[in-house]
């Protein structure tokens, strides 16, 4: 008998578009990791009538799917899902389990890690395999200027959560095939102690910032609400949206909906302006997809300036005013 291949698991979170996207993104990253340790990429899907997702995960790189398909699993129940997953992990012993940091994932993964007596690194911005074959979980730390490389040396599985948008999914290929393992619904499954009384989809979420081609972001360096307000003028002029760092949101210069970063929104504009932003990882991790970055900062050594295509050493609000003037002039003519 040949030894069982090692496995990397991705939890199949599909309830809405973003959840499903993060699952596909994780499958893509898992495929890269799997090459380095010769492992099999697997997805786990629980739910009621999940064929659509099974097909999609195979098309996006899963070689094997563990599936429990049962009417009782129609609604996400954290206790039920945790128990099913706990049993499956104990049976199959994957090396690595990756979970999207959605609201559900952030409730489900910590419980699972607790039951499996293993570690869990939250909101990884990078994942890799080191020389010893361990999963390197990269997480922002210490105020956001540094990245910590974290490993789980002894406990298994190695677990991490990742925010949507951190990795790029690979294009689907519906010609791919994969093995589907049906895991029967256990008979002894206790009822979830949390009862879902009512659930309705929230009205269509405002996606303007995420989809914007032009984003004007401001940070603490702007210095006041009044100066920050200039950004709205610039954004309007350019047909773009305004984003803000956490200090700017905390200071109430911008609405919480404008927060860009690990705790806020992921953006991928064609052009991104950053005014008075230092470039902490919790912020920059959410704008890796920006095509052309112009940063304005008094300090030429700020991390944001090093990451920008054009680094402008100037006072943020003075430069913003000059820029508005110039655009107006050019648009007028």
């Amino acid at each position: 008998m040949t030894a069982k291949r090692r496995q990397i698991w991705v939890f199949g979170d599909y309830r809405n578009y973003f959840q499903n996207r993060v699952t596909l993104q994780l499958l893509s990253r898992a495929t890269d990791l799997a090459r380095k340790i010769d492992a099999e990429v697997c997805a786990v899907v629980f739910g009621d009538k999940v064929d659509e997702w099974v097909g999609e995960y195979i098309a996006h790189g899963a070689e094997k799917i563990y599936r429990t398909d049962h009417p009782r699993l129609a609604a996400y129940g954290v206790e039920t899902y945790t128990l099913l997953m706990e049993r499956l992990v104990k049976r199959e012993k994957p090396e690595i389990v990756l979970v999207g940091a959605t609201a559900f994932g952030r409730e489900f993964a910590p419980r699972l890690a607790k039951r499996l007596v293993t570690g869990l690194t939250a909101d990884c911005i990078g994942l890799d395999i080191n020389g010893e074959g361990l999963l390197v979980q990269m997480a922002p730390s210490f105020g956001g200027n540094l990245v910590a490389e974290i490993v789980t040396p002894e406990r298994r599985p190695q677990m991490a959560t990742v925010r949507p948008g951190t990795f790029q999914e690979i294009p689907h290929d519906y010609a791919r095939t994969g093995e589907v393992v049906d895991v029967p619904m256990p008979r002894d499954l206790p009822a979830d102690r949390v009862r879902l009384v009512q659930s309705e989809r929230c009205p269509q979420r405002d996606q303007k910032l995420e989809d914007a081609k032009v984003v004007v972001c401001g940070g603490r360096g702007l210095g006041s609400k009044k100066k920050f307000a200039k950004l709205f003028e610039l954004a309007e002029l350019l047909g773009g949206e305004v984003g803000a760092t956490r200090p700017a949101v905390y200071a109430d210069w911008a609405d919480h909906n404008a927060l860009v970063g690990q705790a806020g929104k992921q953006i991928r504009p064609q052009i991104l302006f950053c005014f008075g932003i230092s470039g902490a990882i919790q912020f920059t991790a959410a704008c890796n997809g920006a095509k052309f970055v112009i940063a304005v900062n008094k300090n030429p050594n700020a991390a944001m300036m090093k990451r920008a295509d054009v680094a402008i050493v100037a006072d943020a609000s003075q430069f913003c005013a000059a820029l508005i003037q110039e655009f107006k002039k050019r648009f007028r003519s």
């Binding site: 869990l120 991390a303 054009v310």
Partner: peptide, 28 residues
């Protein structure tokens, strides 16, 4: 704790970029 911090690094790999300085109008 099951996890260990192996290493802490600064990720500012620094990309090739253009630095502009001077009076705001001139930079624009």
């Amino acid at each position: 704790s099951a996890t260990k911090i192996l290493n802490v690094f600064s990720p500012t790999e620094g990309k090739e970029n253009i630095v502009l300085t001077g009076a705001p109008k001139r930079i624009v």
